[in-house]
Amino acid sequence: MKKFEVINVKDTRSGFGAGLSELGKKNPNVVALCADLTGSLKMDAFQKEHPERFFQVGIAEANMIGLAAGMAIGDKIPYTGTFANFSTGRVYDQIRQSVAYSNKNVKICASHAGLTLGEDGATHQILEDIGLMKMLPNMTVINPCDYNQTKAATIAIADYEGPVYLRFGRPAVPNFTPENQTFEIGKALLLNEGSDVTIFATGHLVWKSIEAAYLLAEKGISVELINIHTIKPLDKEAVLKSAQKTRAVVTAEEHQMNGGLGDSICQLLALQMPTPVEMVAVNDTFGESGTPDQLMKKYGLDVQDVVAAVERVLARKG
């Protein structure tokens, strides 16, 4: 098992803020809109550097999405910022009609996704957003795993013409992917080659899966670990290639089982290459208040849960 060096421990939302700031300097068409969460989304740098291209919209997310669609018509590249809950569920029809169906070049940037939002509780902990967004035709769905990857994704999506949902989180997590990496939308990243089982992980569950793979390696289990940062379009070739090789799959994500990455992979495998799959995801329940670590443990998204899922799938593989 390859060893991954932790460069530092940082929140992915800061990667977004850094990426947006860097992008603002080189692309004059990039504009940013924020619904009263500038500090939380780390959009302050862009706001300070480009006040004429930053639009405070107040607590009015529906209007923010519509404004962004209109600005895209005028060749701007709008980045909207608010929590994942208010970026998706709250404004679903605005995104559906004005952005996705109208195919506008809007980048919906969503922080504080999932359980790791923590103490604010289930009202704010959206676990359905990937599903909501991936069901929309024309929508690209990206969920990076650390600071560097989020920064790279933030910059890369400006060069892609079309609606994008970019999902990231609140807590500081290990930052281990290369600085100044090239982010390729829709390209799965092979983190570790293995032969017994494949773990497809996204977002915060990528590092959890790395830690799980270390523990499994000690037990003599060879894990192939693949980072799926783009849930839609899914890198089908990479998924099928690895599943064919290991014949046992675990998916891991900070999202509902319904509608998430695991659901996409199961659909692909069921249709093209039936393979035993175990899913590490939240199983049809809301979250609650607590620290991120406590919540990940209680809701079955911790390192030990990934290990257990691998053991279950290996038992089924026979």
């Binding site: 639009f55 529906a62 209007n63 923010m64 999405i65 519509g66 404004l67 962004a68 669609a69 209109g70 600005m71 895209a72 018509i73 005028g74 060749d75 701007k76 709008p78 029809d93 605005q94 559906r96 009609q97 004005s98 169906y101 109208s102 506008k104």
Partner: peptide, 20 residues
């Protein structure tokens, strides 16, 4: 320039286009 029909969305889009 944009889909409409689900009501209440066009004003926001138009204002966005005006800002652009």
């Amino acid at each position: 320039r944009v889909a409409s029909g689900s009501l209440g969305q066009g004003l926001s889009v138009a204002i966005g286009a005006a800002l652009a």
